[in-house]
Design a protein around this nucleic acid. Structure first.
Lengths: 343, 343
DNA sequence: CTGAAAGCGCTTACAG
DNA sequence: CTGAAAGCGCTTACAG
């Protein structure tokens, strides 16, 4: 017998995975009815429904969402563009989002945004090839070219962990400038006057620095000392940075860090030099990591509810699939300074 | 004009995304040729190839992999089942795998394995509905039902971070028993004789404990003190555990912890009580986290090359898609005790 | 409430 | 080296 049409792919690939056809035959109804039982059961008569459900269970049918997505033009896939998931601030967001979306039948695909704009573009293309129903960015996108690309993709795009003035589509995050200002107020309220800021030079970290500086300026205080280098904030070694500053004659009374991990390094260096924290030197982190919470002294830090960002993103995505437009295009989840022992 | 067939989905969804048809028209060739240029360019005449590439660029064509996967029976999707990505040991593995797979045109989808066996089963079904070419588990699967299910799915299944005697398909990891033994040898070699083990009660942690105990037993030494509770290892508060043990009269000279985070808590409690580390009390973690590396004193720990696990997994997956069977079904990436300052 | 049938956008065996 | 055409497994407008 001649093989008609296609059935390629590796020979071992699911030889006899049951299809709608099989279930239809088993239940004695049409494939359309099976599909309805799965996707809009309320449109099917109760008895038919039960009969079909029994047939689904008996055959062990698992719908092919590749085919379903192609037919319905809805993939139920959400793509998350992340800078890396090892020790990432965004993990809580991705995790909460994954969980909320799973409950609605969606799945999350991961795209790593390493490298320059060219790699970013390639990653986006590879993601769009899956026809995701939504795209989650873990920051405000700054490249005009990429912004244009995403706008044209006509897909729900959610920028997270930031609040750009003009989001591509929807933004869910908080104001980094406001966080920087709050940090400055906190420092000043504690009576410290010689802050050292150890920061990465990524846009959001710089926005925080800007807010921090603005407050000092408004109070007529001098510019803060600042160590700002072009490295990824998670691998900055706070220990070395503090050491370098002290060795150069700096005498800060508080160190404001770009991340908890940097702050942990600062804590370690302070301890090694016999500086008492917070008496001699206060230390403040950013991100409220678990490691910071168990540190000694426990790290004062800024907490962002990353899970809440993820849940809100899922809500926007699911809502739009049902025709509900989000009420706001910029959703502020705020932040909170967690005063613990280190400052 | 009557609308023929389907074109449903949300109205805003990619109204005019170009298809193969458009590109074929623009290039003046058949759709089959476009497909070949994309998937097996060597089978197309150079001039045709260039003409087609120009047409692809001109139209901004992005292949629909939902359709491609359906037609070819290869989704180029790999599903990773993870217990959570916030602060997870597996993140390096997922990240390295994602990166390696991306280079080969694959994408990673995430499934969260929270809850009991029922949820696990639901997650697997939802994942299989995408017809992934591979399934990555972040541990050896222990439920017989799930094992059976996965074997029947006839998909490449890779169990990671462990080395079960009989893998479902392929396993990439290391022996937790051997790691526990190595830890015991290390402790004994340093002259310590009163270990306290703070461990989670998950299977792999228990396997390490077993190895640890076996060495002591073989040397005729007494059983180690052991705090083993049924909580997730990442949220165990090492501080409380050490405090409870000391308050109950325990006098350990070394604490062997189930994770770096627990060890950090132990370090904090020791510092608070004025115990010198490692003179009065040595502390050992597990996992070689960044936070442990910047701690003071720097944490002695066990390093597993999680990224290597991810790369090997990608290799197996990609190889099999090309018809190459992995040479071994159990791949040992080993582990390494990293002696730093705390022990 | 249910079914027959077109169509989603690809891939590839076959023929030339 | 290239094209015509069947088929992948679904969904849904339409008709009854």
């Amino acid at each position: 017998m001649r093989r008609l049409g296609n059935r390629p792919g590796p020979p071992e690939a699911r030889p006899g995975a049951p299809t709608l056809e099989h279930v239809a035959r088993a239940a004695g109804v049409s494939t359309a009815t099976i599909s309805r039982v799965i996707n809009s059961p309320e449109r099917v008569a109760p008895e038919t429904r039960e009969k079909v459900r029994a047939a689904i269970a008996a055959t062990g049918y698992v719908p092919n969402l590749l085919a379903g997505g192609l037919a319905s033009n809805r993939s139920r896939l959400v793509a998350a563009l992340v800078p890396g998931i090892a020790a990432s601030l965004f993990n809580e967001t991705i995790e909460a989002m994954t969980q909320a979306l799973a409950a609605a039948g969606y799945l999350v695909v991961l795209g790593l945004t390493r490298g320059g704009p060219a790699e970013m573009d390639a990653t986006i293309t590879s993601l769009l090839a899956r026809r995701p129903d939504g795209l989650i960015l873990t920051s405000a996108e700054r490249s005009a070219k990429v912004r244009k690309r995403l706008r044209e993709a006509a897909v729900t795009v959610i920028e997270t962990w930031d609040l750009p003035a003009r989001p591509i589509d929807v933004a869910i995050g908080f104001s980094h400038t406001a966080a920087g200002r709050a940090l400055a107020e906190f420092v000043l309220a504690s009576g410290r006057r010689r802050p050292l800021v150890i920061t990465s030079n990524l846009p959001r970290a710089l926005a925080r620095l800007e807010g921090f500086r603005a407050v000092l300026r408004e109070r007529g205080l001098p510019e803060p000392a600042c160590d700002m280098r072009s490295v990824d904030s998670f691998s900055i070694n706070g220990r070395e940075r503090l050491a370098a500053h002290l060795d150069a004659g700096g005498r800060p009374d508080v160190v404001v860090c770009t991340s908890d991990l940097v702050a942990l390094g600062v804590l370690a260096e302070a301890s090694r030099r016999g500086l008492r924290v917070p008496e001699d030197l206060a230390v403040i982190g950013f991100g409220a990591s678990e490691a910071g919470a168990v540190a000694w002294p426990a790290l004062t830090t800024v907490r962002i509810d990353g899970a809440e960002i993820g849940r809100q993103a899922a809500e926007v995505l699911i809502g739009r699939a049902q025709g509900r437009e989000p009420t706001r295009r910029r959703i502020d989840v705020g932040f909170e300074i967690v005063a613990r022992d280190s400052a």
